[in-house]
Write a protein that binds this DNA or RNA. Structure first.
Lengths: 177, 177
DNA sequence: GGCCCCTCCTTGAACTTTAAACAAATGCCC
DNA sequence: GGGCATTTGTTTAAAGTTCAAGGAGGGGCC
């Protein structure tokens, strides 16, 4: 009599299923991914800290504001765009406000609401530091990849991003915590 | 008379070169990348904080130690493998030591040196939490990508990672700071 | 209106990371 | 050996992030 084909769980006792370990190939991919992300994060944070006096995330917030109509966004909306928690955003905006780059405004429609508004000074910082930042991103990423790789990277990361923010209610999304 | 073909710098005054802005396609790629990375980082940090009581980076340190001969590594070597600064590593190991998951040992050959050694308790934590972590990584990444995309992602991120740690002396690498 | 639940945003404490400075040991050059 | 730059790792303080809690307003339901 042959052993069952789907074998590794013997006996009648309930056992945890054997974890689906990563293959060697998958491990190599995952390691490259983590190393690349870690180094890139470090690199861009450092570049922006040096040239713009703020971390990458904060810079990203100013960019979102600059692109928004009337250069303003509700806090939760901004948190959602930046994929961060509202708490983190509150602290970040507080610091950017202290720098004079952002100002808060009450929302007339909803007294709980706050707008974060990009100031002229904030816009000016962005204008002056954007070229250096773009250049850093180019050097580190786009200049090294073929057009096919760029396209592929975009698709892959979009899939991952969308997978982590499912449409269903009850998803554990940072800006809803 | 026609304008020069490579035109945008007029007159004889030296001007900064027009920055090489990202095209719309490139911007979309870059945004997907940042969003995916931000959400993934958040997701894994949260999963590990909940199930293993430590952030993703700390978990990664334990993994590196588990894979090393005699489950130990010199501090700088570990920082290099994890792509982080020695300062950050010092703090991290201090905390892991407080948890009893890592222990420090003097290096006999170099009195400045320290080994970080994975304890049996640390190994045990790893053994118990690894399946959950692998599962999270699978769900978020590998299960969503075709084999071609996985391969592509590996190549792309390896290129980026290598680009950020050039062989030349004087490179600004975290573990040399 | 009164009640309850939910959303919006902030706060303070604990924790993690960065930045700068430092002590000790090494290694090199003479 | 003596001097000096470099390497190794830690430490302190400041900055940033997470976590849990909470105040205040909105909105539905009775």
């Amino acid at each position: 009599m042959k052993a069952p084909a789907s074998a590794p769980t013997p006996g009648s006792v309930a056992e945890p299923p054997e974890p689906r370990w990563l293959t060697d190939d998958e491990q190599r991919v995952w390691r490259s991914f983590m190393e690349g992300v870690t180094l890139l994060d470090d690199h861009l944070d450092r570049q922006l800290q040096r040239d713009a006096g703020m971390p990458h995330v904060y810079y990203g917030l100013l960019v979102k504001l600059a692109e928004a109509p009337r250069r303003r966004l509700r806090m939760t909306e901004l948190a959602m765009l930046a994929k961060i928690t509202r708490s983190r955003l509150s602290h970040a905006i507080a610091r950017l406000e202290k720098n004079g780059w952002v100002r808060r405004e009450d929302c007339p429609d909803d007294k709980r609401g706050q707008f974060a508004v990009l100031t002229n000074e904030g816009y000016e910082v962005l204008r002056q530091t954007a070229p250096g930042h773009v250049e850093a991103v180019r050097q580190a990423v786009f200049d090294r990849l073929t057009p096919e790789q760029q396209k592929s990277l975009g698709e892959i990361m979009r899939i991952i991003a969308e997978g982590l923010q499912p449409a269903e209610a009850g998803a554990d999304l940072p800006w809803l915590r």
